[in-house]
Nucleic acid binder design. Sequence first.
DNA 1: GTCTATATTAAGATAGAC
DNA 2: GTCTATCTTAATATAGAC
Lengths: 198, 198
Amino acid sequence: MPRTIGSYSQNTRTLVRQSAERLFARHGYAAVSMRQLASDVGVQVGTIYNYTKDKQALLFAIMSEHMTELLQAWSREWQSTDPIDQLSQFLNFHLDYHLARRDAVFIAYMELRNLDAANFEEIETLRRQYEDALEQILIAGKSAKAFDIADTRITTLAIIGMLTEVVTWYRPDGRLKLDEVKSHYREMVLRMVMPQTR
Amino acid sequence: MPRTIGSYSQNTRTLVRQSAERLFARHGYAAVSMRQLASDVGVQVGTIYNYTKDKQALLFAIMSEHMTELLQAWSREWQSTDPIDQLSQFLNFHLDYHLARRDAVFIAYMELRNLDAANFEEIETLRRQYEDALEQILIAGKSAKAFDIADTRITTLAIIGMLTEVVTWYRPDGRLKLDEVKSHYREMVLRMVMPQTR
DNA sequence: GTCTATATTAAGATAGAC
DNA sequence: GTCTATCTTAATATAGAC
């Protein structure tokens, strides 16, 4: 039987990337050896170096592409001009995207310490851009008096912290369905930012 | 000049512990070698093994003592019976305690992957107890109709996620004073749980 | 593109002298 | 209690054959 083009066998570059992402997320960058990675891919260690300059480049590629794709995906996603809708869209987008890419997310949050100084700066810039995307929504909503927020920066960080924490415990077969989780978070975040009469 | 008892020179056991906590927090458990640790303490590597069975025992001791002390400190702290006061006390306590012990906190959140299975279970149990301490406050407040909370477990995790995230960015010389940070978070959390008329 | 073999360095841990 | 010396294993990375 002839090989179906590009279907049966993934190329090694892809496999290296997938294995690295999974292993780094599970055991941590520093704890994973190039031999372990090679064994997981199913090649010998020398082969890995055909696809990456060194171990650091592998980590940086994973984090950098993750952050870039995250920013691109959000820029494609958002459209509404109503502050509340924008915020809801962001919450849904963030949870969907992060839960679908748990390994990359985990790495992006946990492995900052293991980046070279130059690589660290680049990733931090991207992360900052993502935080700013949310803060812009809060700022616009505050100007329009749709939101009542004392400090948009703090609120931005609080919301992202609270949302990202979901990645550490959510399981598809857990007590709550994803839609329930999303609606709970939507309610909590809206309460945080909407004008109140207490 | 005679040595002042217990003042000038800390004993090696203490130094090993302090160095390990700082180095593990900065570089990650897996990335720190016993030689690096010894050098930081100012002894040779053989000496380290007079104070720990192995590297894993060092990590477990740091995490286990941190979690135990955290739980003890909270049990000493809380007293009020009014739900809103209890929650405010928890927020203040959590931020004060976590910001004062950033290294241990960082390790306790980042290095779970590097614990042996048995050690992991033990730490998870302690962490769960701490989460439960907050959830008990929310449950009691909900029963007393002081709080309006759809799902106390989700709200517990959201609050802890949002508070702990502060550790990653707060700096004593930053834009906001600690008291300002605390009051912003108090406001956000109270909005999340208080009955609303929107 | 992958393998084997190897260079080099460093890791965790222990034994025994002082 | 600390040091030096050492065992053993494993790490990153490269060279060169197939």
